[in-house]
């Protein structure tokens, strides 16, 4: 045998796209979650959740976004075969699961502040918004019931703002003000963007820079963030996907390369 067992094949950093870095960073959001429902929105988080389950987090539950849970790994846009159905999760049961806490969602907000308050509802004055977005949808309930992460495909000072116009997803300062179960269970795990990974490990649960993607400087991230970001003295680079993760991403989940439409660079 020419390759030692247990030694991973090398990944050539030059061949890894920014989207693939983002997918690995999103996948890590679910690391350690075990047997809970992973609910990704948008393309990169969807690829990430399936990649996480196919590699380091095999007990995750994954749905088709409609009403069925499936085993195995399948491509974006594809419906898995019926013999891989393992559960029935119509919307009403999704509410049951989210209220039970056994879920971790990754949403894509239009605004986020330094305490993790997130807006998917509307921009401007709520009574007459300058731009109506989706509405609060499930964000208020998601954030106070189970872990939540965010995916921001375009990191900018328009997204990362001092104050969000409408708090749909609850952040740490708001949760602390409510106290009780809400403060105990609020868990905004991480924010992955096209430039960096943030969490809320700064003073008083404020946003902190965890890592910058290869090729991105700390100054770029700080400049594209509209609030004071906690920047540790030493900020590492975001990790590369493993060879096995890259195989899953490129050959199994996203052979059509939809990830590059969501993250350019």
């Amino acid at each position: 045998m020419s390759v030692q067992e247990g030694v991973r094949p090398e990944v050539d950093a030059a061949t890894v796209s920014r989207a693939e870095i983002c997918i690995a960073a999103c996948a890590d959001a679910w690391r350690g979650d075990g047997e809970i429902l992973a609910s990704p929105m948008l393309t990169v988080p969807t690829i990430a959740a399936r990649t996480a389950r196919a590699t380091f987090e095999p007990d995750l539950l994954l749905s088709d976004g409609e009403s069925r849970l499936y085993t195995g790994t399948w491509a974006i846009g594809e419906t898995p075969p019926a013999d891989r159905i393992e559960g029935y999760v119509p919307f009403r049961r999704i509410f049951d699961i989210l209220w039970s806490g056994k879920r971790h969602v990754m949403m894509s907000p239009s605004q986020v502040d330094r305490f993790g308050n997130a807006n998917i509802s509307a921009l401007g004055e709520f009574a007459k918004p300058t731009r109506q977005l989706l509405g609060v949808r499930g964000a208020p309930g998601n954030t106070v019931n189970h872990p939540t992460s965010y995916w921001v495909p375009r990191h900018s000072a328009r997204v990362f703002v001092e104050r969000v116009d409408m708090v749909a997803g609850v952040g740490y300062d708001r949760a602390a003000a409510v106290g009780g179960d809400v403060a105990r269970d609020l868990d905004i795990r991480r924010v992955v963007t096209n430039l960096a990974v943030l969490d809320f490990g700064g003073p008083d649960h404020t946003a902190r820079l965890v890592s910058v993607h290869p090729g991105v400087t700390v100054d770029e991230v700080v400049g594209a963030t509209g609030f004071a970001l906690d920047v540790p003295a030493d900020v590492p680079e975001s990790r590369l996907p493993t060879a096995e993760e890259l195989r899953i991403i490129r050959e199994v989940v996203d052979p059509r390369g939809l990830r590059d439409k969501e993250v350019r660079a």
């Binding site: 509802s121 208020p140 954030t143 106070v144 609850v170 708001r174 809400v182 609020l186």
Partner: peptide
């Protein structure tokens, strides 16, 4: 619980 802490 849902709604608490948000602007709803």
């Amino acid at each position: 619980r849902s709604g608490l802490g948000s602007d709803v």
